[in-house]
Write a protein that binds this DNA or RNA. Structure first.
Lengths: 156, 156
DNA sequence: CTTGCAACAGAAAGATTTTCCTTCTACACG
DNA sequence: CGTGTAGAAGGAAAATCTTTCTGTTGCAAG
């Protein structure tokens, strides 16, 4: 796969900054990377158009909004057919408690991170999940005790 | 734990919006939640000051910046002392490839997500990790085949 | 009532976006 | 060689739009 976009050192400097704080003004970003606001803005817009930048979002403190419980759910399926995989992806997309879902190689087929308010809410989620998804061979839930680190900033 | 902040329906509507797109103008947000820009802005500022909103960031496409490989590393430690835990957290904080690190309850002590460019980069990371962290009893790496879902938006 | 909170309209301050211009480099051609 | 041209990248300044702040009003609870 040849990458269509090759960020130079300046692009990367910009990305490193706004990956951490997208509220910085163009003037500040520009000063930091040694440009004036205009070319800086042009680079950012280009990266948005090319899909390098996929969005701007605010992050919330899960505790503060009463969603302090993260649970990792490892799933082994008994059905590896394309229709099952597709149906599973659709179900996952529809459940907002699932904030991450990865298909893995190896013993575990899927790993989910589920965000809920408490154990009871997780139980409710768990029942809905297992009721909706057929052919689950093994489901292992592990509760997070502490969020040691969690960042959206890629090591660019 | 009593929560100091109780968002009302309007606060939550605002959060749902800007969790998905923080580039929306106040005018747009206000129209959507049925307010004028000023009270809307005051609510957002309040939530920022109270720490409900922890930051504004841009999200990147990992593939487009050449970091398309995510690996989950499950760690079981042989040392559960406070100093070990602290030292481990410090090491994790210093390694930018580790984008998530959770301390779990149960058989697995820690679960990491590591973002790298390719298998070779992961091997390099793996060597550095195991060289720096003592008393690792078991380390299991699972490669992500597909990112089925990944969102920063909490189900508020 | 009246007190306090939340909303509003409108103005000021500040940021973004556009337009236009300059510079630099690479490359083709006389 | 020297010159002309195209394309990429930067910059200054103006226009436009947003955010932020002011003062004021309305409404609900006490």
């Amino acid at each position: 796969m040849t990458r269509s976009f090759e960020p130079d050192a300046t692009d990367r400097a910009i990305l490193r900054l706004i990956q951490k704080d997208a509220a910085l003004s163009l003037a500040d970003i520009a000063k930091d990377v040694g440009l004036t606001p205009t070319p800086c803005w042009k680079r950012i817009r280009k990266m948005e158009q090319e899909g390098v930048i996929t969005g701007r979002v605010v992050l919330l403190d899960p505790e503060k909004v009463g969603l302090g419980v993260s649970v990792f759910v490892a799933i082994e399926t008994g059905d590896h057919s394309a229709p099952w995989i597709e149906a599973f992806a659709t179900t996952v997309a529809k459940m907002p408690e699932i904030v991450e879902c990865w298909r893995l190689g190896g013993d575990v087929d899927y790993l989910l991170r589920v965000v809920v308010s408490d154990m009871q809410a997780f139980d409710s989620f768990y029942r809905r999940l297992t009721a909706q998804v057929p052919s689950l061979r093994k489901v292992t839930s592990r509760f997070a005790m502490e969020r040691v680190k969690s960042t959206t900033a890629l090591p660019i």
